Amino acid sequence: MKLVEEVKKQSSKWVKTVDSRYANFYWQDGYGIFSVNPSQLDIVIKYIKNQEEHHRKKTFKKELLAFLNKYNVEYDERYLWD
């Protein structure tokens, strides 16, 4: 938990130095961590690069719920969203 907190804190500070457009950047509360099979790394990189386009077709909320259900992850939806 402390590691994620520190990564969010430091990366937020860094993003704000990149461009003035990001002066109000902040991370949402909470986080989720998922492992990636190294053989699927290219797929994950492509997904990240095309996330904006991808989420025009399927919202993040729908995608996350589908992912959690596909892998039988127990969750309480009250705690998923800000």
Rank of each mutant, 00 (worst) to 15 (best):
L65M: 12
N69D: 15
K70L: 12
K57D: 10
I43F: 08
Q28H: 06
N37R: 13
K46M: 05
P38F: 01
W27Q: 03
I33M: 12
W14N: 04
S11C: 03
I33N: 02
L41F: 10
R56E: 10
S20I: 09
V7A: 15
D76H: 09
K46N: 15
Q10W: 00
L3P: 00
K57T: 07
D19M: 02
G30E: 03
H54K: 06
F25Y: 15
L80C: 07
K62V: 10
V7R: 13
D76Y: 13
I48C: 13
F34D: 02
V15R: 02
L64K: 10
V44Y: 12
N72C: 04
Q40M: 12
K16I: 08
V73M: 02
E77Q: 13
L80P: 01
V7E: 13
F34P: 01
Y47W: 02
R21E: 14
W14T: 01
N24G: 02
K49C: 09
K13V: 01
K16D: 06
L3F: 05
Y47A: 14
K62E: 15
Y71S: 09
N72V: 01
I48W: 01
D29H: 08
L41C: 05
D76C: 04
S12M: 11
P38E: 07
V73F: 12
V15F: 15
N37I: 08
K13R: 09
L3N: 09
V15I: 15
K13E: 11
W81G: 14
V36I: 15
I48E: 06
K70Y: 01
L64I: 08
K62P: 00
V36H: 04
I33T: 10
K2S: 14
S11L: 13
S11Q: 05
I45S: 07
E53I: 04
S20M: 06
T17N: 11
F25G: 07
L41E: 07
D82E: 14
E52T: 00
V44F: 15
K2N: 14
L80H: 04
F60V: 05
A66N: 13
Y71L: 10
V4A: 14
D19E: 05
E77W: 00
K9W: 01
S35R: 09
P38Q: 07
V4Y: 03
R56N: 09
T59P: 07
Q10H: 07
S35D: 09
V36C: 11
Y31Q: 07
L3I: 12
N72Q: 14
W27D: 03
D82P: 15
S39W: 00
E6V: 00
W14C: 04
S35V: 01
E52A: 09
D29G: 06
N69G: 04
Q51E: 05
I43S: 00
L65S: 08
L64Y: 11
K58Q: 06
F25R: 02
K61N: 13
W81E: 11
A23G: 09
Q40L: 08
L64S: 07
N72Y: 10
G30H: 07
D42Y: 08
Y47C: 06
L64V: 11
K2F: 05
V36N: 06
L64W: 11
P38H: 03
N24F: 15
S12Y: 06
S35H: 08
A23F: 00
V4Q: 11
N69L: 05
K49T: 08
V15K: 08
D76G: 01
L41K: 11
F67S: 12
S11N: 09
Y47K: 12
W14V: 03
N72I: 01
Y47H: 13
V4S: 10
